[in-house]
Design a protein around this nucleic acid. Structure first.
Length: 600
RNA sequence: UGCCCGAUGGUGUAAUGGUAGCACGAACGACUCUGACUCGUUCUGUCUAGGUUCGAGUCCUAGUCGGGCAGCCA
């Protein structure tokens, strides 16, 4: 990633209702340090919706000299994989690099919560360390021992019981939102029996679904999550992190609040759908009578983006059904897809900061995202010339071997722009779109008998249109007015249009992948079947002609092909090769087009 | 017909009882060796009805509309 981009990462300090709250807590010195967390489940790749959560949590840590723990919320072995853990770590570090990476909290490799004494009472705590060779992200699975101990304590306090109801019966007993549930027949087992059964559940004596550990709250509560929500279920499944050690796994509502507690989280920020769970979050922590200040949960609305799917389940479907080439397909709204496409982390940060944080379930216009990308790329991308759909133009007043050196600007937005040299030769390629035999009104480009400027070179005139027997365009012939080159007497001569070009004899070919939105409707998630609204033209592959300097282009470099858009070498498929070394296979991804006011 | 959350231009968001502002978008114009960028002008808004108040987008009540909740998913 170019330095220009990461340097421009500074974003105005945002305010929102959560930050206001944190500011109040800081003012009243409620906590020694503000600690947040980003707790993804490793069951898929992170996407642009997660970027909002990451920037919120790390942003709050950053603005308050606090810390934000990366934690794998890995309590469901059936869906979680190491591949996802690794992608999550890479994506988070990429997104916050140079911005909030100093706030990132990991834990020592293999560490579990250590026994401490707090306020004269036994307690457990796991301190963060900086990311490095001997550290790893926090994970709920490294708390399994402690979580189990807490469960035993809950049983002893008469606040949890082992229930023998089958999943189907549990469902029946739960009632409905507008109808109270019924107490489980196993609700009033003795502490001793509960303890015995729970121990045997852990020992693997029972099949999956045979028994569960349940909270003992209120089966008639209007809040469904308070109707004795399950705490533990039996799963005879290996876990990607703990292996075969457990056949008893905690559920989210039990594991999450306690994980927050063990890490000393102060502000546990999640999305709106967890609002109903908050009383349960508090209930678990309060029922245990823990000695430290308790974490609290706050909710905000997740990001919804036009023409985009933000749902790991559906994104997985796109991958599995081969609608896209993988989680990091540049059309995917995943962080890895966006990165591969050429979207800078700073653009993502700028975007999610701009949309704000509220409790209103909104749908953000993609144009806002696209604007943030262009904004970052305009200053961060080097200008180059490339022709996507070439038409040959022969400048008949230039000799076949003649080369005219033209100086081109790399970074017009910078205060001290640098330059490079372009070769103008007798034969060049221009964009087929830039020539019209029968031009529409206000067409500023090349037409028969018309003049146009070749950017950085000179004004040329189209003298002749050469066609084959079938009437198809073969080539254009014209003349160059070399006195209009920069530095020459007529360099100030104005023509209405300026077009891009490359030398036909000093250029390099590359595969260029043009991406368009993946869906044809603004709200694909609202569709009965979102696969039916996939854009059939979301990818177009071209063989383009690039100015020869691009032969050494490497992944991570960001370019603007003038008048076309922003492009970056594909991190997987592109291989640069300095001439004359072999035959490099250059592959460029189009990140985004330039804004086009002319748009036909 | 239970509980919880929400409602400000086309979109997103600000105004914390005192001039409804910003951004995106759109339209037009200026500039231009990128029909980009930049700059200028314009466009459109407090869900409804009551109440409190000198004063309400903001507080209260009721309604309307939208979202969430009945996984041994997170």
């Amino acid at each position: 990633m170019s330095d220009a981009i990461s340097a421009s990462a500074a974003t105005p300090a945002p305010t929102d209702f959560i930050r206001d709250l944190v500011a109040r807590h800081v003012a009243e010195q409620r906590y020694a340090k503000i600690v947040t967390r980003f707790p993804p489940e490793p069951n898929g790749y992170l996407h642009i919706g997660h970027a909002k959560s990451i920037c919120l949590n790390f942003g709050i840590a950053r603005e308050n000299a606090g810390q934000c723990n990366l934690r794998m919320d890995d309590t469901n072995p059936a869906k979680e994989e190491v591949e996802y853990v690794e992608s999550i770590i890479a994506d988070v570090q990429w997104l916050i690099a140079g911005w909030a990476d100093h706030c990132l909290g990991f834990k020592p490799k293999g560490a579990t919560p250590t026994a401490v004494t707090t306020n004269g009472r036994p307690d457990h705590y796991l301190a963060p360390v900086a990311p490095g060779a001997n550290s790893e992200p926090f994970s709920a699975s490294s708390y399994f021992d402690q979580l189990y101990a807490y469960a035993v304590e809950l049983i002893k306090r008469g606040k949890a019981y082992v229930c023998d109801l089958s999943p189907a019966d549990t469902d029946k007993y739960r009632g409905a939102p507008d109808r109270p549930g019924k107490d489980s027949p196993f609700r009033n087992r003795s502490v001793a029996e509960n303890l015995d059964l729970f121990t045997r559940m852990k020992a693997g004596e029972f099949p999956e679904g045979a028994r569960s550990l349940r909270s003992k709250i209120d089966m008639a509560s209007p809040n469904m999550w308070l109707r004795d929500q399950l705490l533990y279920r039996i799963r005879h499944t290996a876990h990607h992190h703990t292996g075969d050690q457990w056949c008893l796994y905690p559920l989210y509502d039990y594991a999450h609040c306690l994980s927050d507690y063990l890490e000393g989280i102060t502000h546990s920020i999640c999305t709106l759908e967890f609002t109903d769970h908050r009383p349960l979050y508090d209930w678990v922590l309060e029922s245990l009578g823990l000695p430290r200040p308790l974490p609290h949960q706050y909710e905000f609305a997740k990001l919804n983006l036009g023409y985009t799917i933000v749902s790991k389940r559906r994104l997985l479907q796109l991958v599995n059904e081969k609608v896209v080439a993988g989680w990091d397909d540049p059309r995917m709204p995943t962080l890895s897809g966006l990165r591969r496409r050429g979207v800078p982390a700073s653009a993502l940060r700028r975007f999610v900061t701009g949309v704000g944080v509220t409790k209103f379930d909104s749908l953000t216009d993609v144009a806002v995202f696209e604007h943030a990308i262009r904004e970052e790329l305009n200053t961060g991308a080097q200008r180059r010339l490339a022709v996507l759909r070439p038409v040959r133009l022969v400048l008949t007043n230039l000799a076949p071997g003649e080369t005219i050196e033209c100086r081109a600007t790399n970074d017009p937005q910078s205060e001290a722009p640098s330059t490079r040299v372009l070769a103008l030769t007798r034969e060049v390629f221009i964009e087929s779109e830039d020539f019209a035999e029968v031009p529409p009104p206000k067409f500023f480009r090349l037409k028969p008998g018309g003049e146009v400027r070749l950017k950085y070179a000179c004004i040329i005139k189209c003298d002749e249109v050469v066609k084959d027997a079938a009437g198809r365009l073969v080539e254009l012939r014209g003349t160059a007015d070399l006195t209009t080159r920069s530095g020459q007497p007529n360099s100030d001569r104005k023509v209405k249009g300026t077009i891009h070009w490359v030398s036909a004899t000093q250029c390099v070919e590359a595969e260029v992948r043009l991406y368009d939105r993946l869906f044809i409707v603004p709200e694909p998630a609202a569709e009965e079947d979102f696969l039916k609204v996939v854009n059939p033209r979301s990818l177009e592959v071209l063989t383009a002609k690039l100015e020869s300097s691009l032969v050494t282009a490497c992944p991570g470099e960001l370019y603007q092909f003038e008048r076309l858009g922003y492009f970056t070498p594909d991190a997987k498929d592109s291989a640069a090769g300095p001439p004359p070394a072999g035959a490099p296979r250059l592959v460029f991804n189009r990140t985004i087009t330039l804004k086009d006011a002319w748009a036909k």
